[in-house]
């Protein structure tokens, strides 16, 4: 498995957003699935996050325009969910599960190891923008505790050695 890096569009390019025809086609296709435009909000936001890497104010405004909502409504929804990035994320977002089964199986040791190796704690990013550590709640994979999600991929039964190796591999991709 090779975890795909996130490539985040720089903020200055996301101040004013207009969807190109490829995005428009996909939005149109999503709208067919629901009786209301509003119901397509989460899927459209996902589409944007895939495309731009994160949800800027400009993206919120573009989505609101497209679906006929107010920017405030869209922002309210975006802020409710933990997975939408409101800031450009690092290339690799290390999402360490800190809920019970993972804590019982050593999640704290992994957090410690990340701190030693990369110098970042929860909520922090490395200076080169490659890694970012986030504490997340149960990932629904507790049988594989401790669990680390990196971008879209799950890494289960993480030992400190496996973590070292993973971080090295990801860093080498640069």
């Amino acid at each position: 498995m090779k975890t795909q890096a996130i490539s985040a569009t720089p903020p200055e390019q996301l101040q004013q957003v207009t969807f190109d025809s490829a995005m428009e086609a996909r939005i149109e296709e999503l709208l067919q699935r629901y009786p209301t435009k509003r119901a397509a909000l989460l899927p459209v936001l996902w589409l944007c996050q895939e495309r731009y890497g994160w949800i800027s104010q400009g993206v919120i405004e573009a989505v609101a325009r497209r679906l006929g909502e107010s920017p405030a409504f869209v922002e309210g929804v975006v802020s409710f969910y933990t997975m939408f990035f409101r800031q450009p994320p690092a290339k690799y977002v290390l999402q360490l599960c800190v809920t019970l089964s993972c804590e019982l199986c050593g999640a704290q040791r992994l957090a410690q190891r990340i701190k030693e190796k990369l110098g970042i704690g929860f909520g922090e990013k490395t200076a080169d923008g490659v890694f970012q550590l986030v504490g997340v709640e149960c990932l629904g994979a507790c049988g594989g505790a401790p669990v680390l999600q990196v971008n879209q991929d799950y890494y289960e039964h993480m030992s400190e050695e496996a973590l070292d190796q993973l971080l090295e591999e990801l860093a080498k991709e640069q």
Partner: peptide, 26 residues
């Protein structure tokens, strides 16, 4: 249709799930 949530435990509760599917906060 597959509809993806976006990170919120409460959206497993059926009425929160419905609100979320309708495009709102859960």
């Amino acid at each position: 249709w597959v509809h993806r949530g976006a990170g919120a435990y409460i959206c497993g509760e059926e009425t929160a799930l419905i609100e979320s599917l309708e495009g709102k906060r859960g």
